[in-house]
Design a protein around this nucleic acid. Sequence first.
DNA 1: AAACCATTCAAACGCCTGTTTAAAACAGAT
DNA 2: ATCTGTTTTAAACAGGCGTTTGAATGGTTT
Lengths: 246, 246
Amino acid sequence: MSSPDQNSSDSNVAVTAESPGGEDARSRILAAAGPVFARSGFDRATVREICGEANVNVASVGYYFGDKMGLYREVIRQVHERKERLFPTPGESKTDAAELLHSVIRTLLSRIFAGDSSGWESQLMMREMMQPTAIFAELVQESFRPLFVRLVETFRRLVTVEVSEHELEQFAFSVVGQCVYYRIGSGVIQILVPEPSRQKHYDIDSLSRHVTGIMLAAAESGRGLQYKHALRVNPSNLTPFNTLPE
Amino acid sequence: MSSPDQNSSDSNVAVTAESPGGEDARSRILAAAGPVFARSGFDRATVREICGEANVNVASVGYYFGDKMGLYREVIRQVHERKERLFPTPGESKTDAAELLHSVIRTLLSRIFAGDSSGWESQLMMREMMQPTAIFAELVQESFRPLFVRLVETFRRLVTVEVSEHELEQFAFSVVGQCVYYRIGSGVIQILVPEPSRQKHYDIDSLSRHVTGIMLAAAESGRGLQYKHALRVNPSNLTPFNTLPE
DNA sequence: AAACCATTCAAACGCCTGTTTAAAACAGAT
DNA sequence: ATCTGTTTTAAACAGGCGTTTGAATGGTTT
């Protein structure tokens, strides 16, 4: 018995009709694993539940992916691939910078919210963000950075007064933060704003226009960095977060 | 043997000097549990690790808190209490609405970043946000709502043109989102912006001025909601998030 | 038919978990 | 010293976990 253990799109394996659920065992495991990992997190998820949902024996995950972590890596890889294909990072071809900004924000929100109605795909990404596993750094470089630099470039074109690089980056983070929060904080929002209003005003279209409007106003006014005021600051608490908790 | 099981600030128990670490066993467990829960999450955290760090027997958590979840509830309760005491929600006494906004944002960022240098307290809150346990709803009502309504009220005073209620709420979420992201996404930021710049520009003071500036510009310009443009929208993806993943 | 190989399967292994138990240690009052 | 109630302890319990094993299956090739 030899384990394939690596992904191979086309091999010599005959694709015969499988018992229940169609597809081969490997694909069924992969499909079942995503939602489970997203719902329960890597630790709380059990290979028994995944295999049960995929109608395969528990030993199959060891056979096809080496171990539980191998399966997890493959799930993350596949999600990133699908997101990039469905919502590619907008090129800088657009002449109107404002329109480009809107397009980027819309792409970001789409990546965050689109997919299976349960939203397991971005739920998974958010988890990676908060509790980085070994593949986190790689994920950031390949998935987050391109959209981030596109945001920075867009703000460079938008801003009227002269600003330094770190200010442009903070503008970009302000965009990302707002968008991400509508997923992360969806539980909070559900409690804080009642149903009818939430149903009406919290779709991708409304939100992207809202965020775009805010950032355009900030960029054009040259504010966002110049707010200084006579303020009684809370002493201490000037510590930057140069160290990650873990 | 009767278990106390509930918190009682002053009881008949004599406070004698304890073996190692000072304080009584209950306090030592509580102190050790916070960082462990924050670092590992409720599930991954083990009572054996907590008790080991607190130098108490594993049975003690059952004795003092009923079970692991009882200990967790008490930890959360204590964190919320401490935050509210150290950084109380600003009253609306301030005459200048802009200054009030800055004050609220500063409070929010302080609550998020202050505390133990490891930042375990807000790490715990972020976890609760993403993976709500039974005490989540209670936490939102008592801890998040007051600051949220203060934000909405502030924007109501700030905004120049007439806006509807849901737009004010979205302004508030934009603030919260930006602030929260600097904690949630700190791992991403560490990778995307190199050390010297991060050390200089990502402290509470800089960030609060940055966020305040953006939101002031947006509120005063009346933008944030009026950005409409000839745009090729990505069809579909108009689904609001009326259902939480779990 | 026989040999080969990839795949599936039920069962077991070893480990770690939260929780419970009953006895021991302790402190203070009688 | 004795009793009383609280706290601490080591050990065990029952269950779930990821992973491994070795045999059974089934199709393909020799």
